[in-house]
Nucleic acid binder design. Structure first.
Lengths: 331, 331
DNA sequence: TTGTAAGCGTTATCAT
DNA sequence: ATGATAACGCTTACAA
């Protein structure tokens, strides 16, 4: 008893291969009597369709790719990554699409390109990345593509799903203002990355809305040490502040020791607001008030959109997810 | 100009399809002249082989699966995960195997099983998991399988690659002893997980080697809060100690505030040793001395072994990787 | 060394 | 509603 083929099932059930194929694919035009007879044969023989054959004949791959630019994948250490995958996997699980991982490095960029256009997948999910992602533009109309986190350069016709960083930052800073702070500094992220830009923008917006003057700005690169450096700059600047809005948790926490050394209490003298709800934020002293991004949901939405596109539908080109405030002890 | 097929390349180069196939697959028995002529045609036409067809004809999938039990995937938030994937991807990148991700939940266990045995992949990498992984035993001789982190229940004939937790724990505790501590407590992990068991065992071993009495033991579940609770138990136990060896960083850091509240200096009064070299360990105050596990390497070795097995070789059934000490400020 | 031709297991197009 | 019968694009004996 080897691997049963469709043909064997057909013989077993006393019907043609075509009919078995119909049953397997849920074609409605099959006499129920026959259908269940075929189904019984399938079960009895433990028949499992052969993916390759099916793909070859139908010209569909039954797979979608998750493309993670290597630069992003350094942020791989990033718990986000796992959450997004879980969201994707959760959705794909109800279909019979398979998830193929592609770590795209400079070295294999062309290989990736060929892979995606080579009919190996029915669509691709591209995880957020920095500038310089010129390459995907041409792909957009060759294969269904969904971006998670909008590329810095808007790709015409691209379908994206992202967390609304600007709104989230406004919400965050609004919360700080609500706590009574008036001179709110920020440790901004790199302005080459969209989140960096938008979170800074949100800070400005919230301040403007409240009729407050913008406080001092220092820039970091999302690392803890850059946060430490930025906090020193802020202090050295001489401009007074009673709160810091950091563009991510790591930079916020990097500021902690600096403030402490300066004899400043958190949140007593200076409130600190983070962003990301990273695991770090829970264990710091005081625990960091921050913004939570719905990453599992992001993954799920990406997958859903891609499936829709593969199904020839035309989903909204841009979906914004909302981050939520996580109150802990630093504001 | 549609997707070029092997046939078109053959026509273009004026040879048979078989020859083109040989060139594509690097069969050595092709006249160099012809080979390069074919290659030129391939390049010119931008020919990319069709995976499905190739797979169907050759009865090979050209893909390996990475199976992550969902239980493990909660540890997904775990940066380890990304590191292992990178290691795997790095190795696979030089081949033309594809990486297929499978998140295995209770719900789709059978689906996974069928997928793996259904000829969809040439082999699978199974990421470490708890007890109760009865299911893979039967797979071991049906499809090449490599475990990362040994399953609690030894699967006969299974090929594993793991970090030597026992040796690492000994090394860690040895370091603590070397720093002059004599009464070393431990916050152990769950004894249902191999790392939990082995790290506790390593602690015992190192103490015994040094002729020291074992200090008090408290158990946690690898979470920060469980570490906090365990530290309280340790303190409440009344048995004095001048060091804590925690089975992971999170638990170690969970103990920090408890020690501090008790007026104990780290490492002055109590040294704290972690395990994992998680990102947390760098940003704590004081930064945590801990053990680093070579996760990228783990992924790479897993992939290498699997490729060897797919290639009909018989790699060592068990490879142990060594963790290394990362000295920071808590010991 | 190269070509011929028979599959590989499905799907899809026509008839029936 | 069901059944023949071509494709689908490639690999692989086997023949030349």
């Amino acid at each position: 008893m080897k691997k049963p083929t469709l043909e064997m099932v057909a013989a077993h059930a006393g019907v043609s291969r075509a009919t078995v194929s119909r049953v397997v694919n849920g074609t409605p035009t099959v006499e129920p009597t026959i259908a269940s007879r075929v189904q019984r044969s399938i079960d009895e023989l433990h028949y499992v369709p052969n993916r390759a054959a099916r793909s070859l004949a139908s010209n569909r791959a039954g797979a979608v790719a998750l493309v993670v630019p290597e630069s992003t994948s350094k942020v791989f250490t990033d718990p986000f990554f796992g959450a997004v995958i879980m969201g994707i996997a959760g959705v794909l699980d109800d279909t019979d699409f398979t998830l193929t991982m592609i770590i795209e490095s400079e070295a294999n960029a062309e290989k990736t390109h060929r892979y995606l256009t080579g009919g190996n997948v029915d669509g691709a999910l591209v995880l957020s990345h920095h500038a310089g992602d010129r390459s995907y533009g041409s792909l957009t109309d060759r294969v269904p593509l969904v971006y998670g986190g909008r590329p810095v350069v808007e790709v015409p016709g691209a379908v994206c799903i992202d967390v609304d960083n600007l709104a989230a930052a406004r919400l965050a800073v609004g919360h700080v203002i609500g706590s009574g702070r008036r001179r709110i500094a920020t440790i901004a992220g790199p302005q080459t990355m969209r989140p960096g830009v938008e979170r800074l923008e949100g800070w400005r917006g919230a301040l403007a809305d409240a009729g407050l003057e913008p406080g001092p700005i220092a820039y970091g690169d999302f690392t803890t040490t850059s946060g430490t450096r930025a906090a020193r700059e802020l202090l050295a600047g001489g401009e007074p502040f009673d709160a810091i809005f950091a563009a991510n948790d790591q930079m916020a926490l990097g500021a902690y020791p600096v403030l402490r050394e300066a004899g400043l209490q958190i949140p007593g003298d200076v409130a600190v607001m983070g962003f990301d709800d990273s695991p770090f934020s829970q264990t710091s002293e005081p625990p960091l008030t921050t913004m939570n991004q719905p990453m599992v949901r992001l993954g799920a939405e990406m997958a859903r959109k891609l499936l829709a596109m593969i199904d020839k539908q035309h989903p909204e080109p841009l979906t914004m997810l909302h981050a939520s405030l996580v109150e802990r002890g630093s504001v």
